[in-house]
Amino acid sequence: MEEFEAARRRPLPLRMRYAFIHTYKPVLDDAPFRAFDSMADYRRWCEANLPAWLGYGRV
């Protein structure tokens, strides 16, 4: 709760500066463009191609 209150007091540009962080994600970041016919296709692709530790696999 206190954390949410503190965030609320910060202006949006500052919140965004803290929130959006660019870190390299192997495989995922290695192509400039990908398109999937369905979300199910995308989920399957993630499970088949991305390292499990990225957390894109379904529970």
Binding site: P32, F33, R34, A35, F36, D37, Y42
Partner: peptide
Amino acid sequence: LTLEQESEVLRRKDFIQLKN
């Protein structure tokens, strides 16, 4: 966007990832 990529967006595939 290449022409092919543009076409994918126009087809409105369910999920499109842009890093270009």
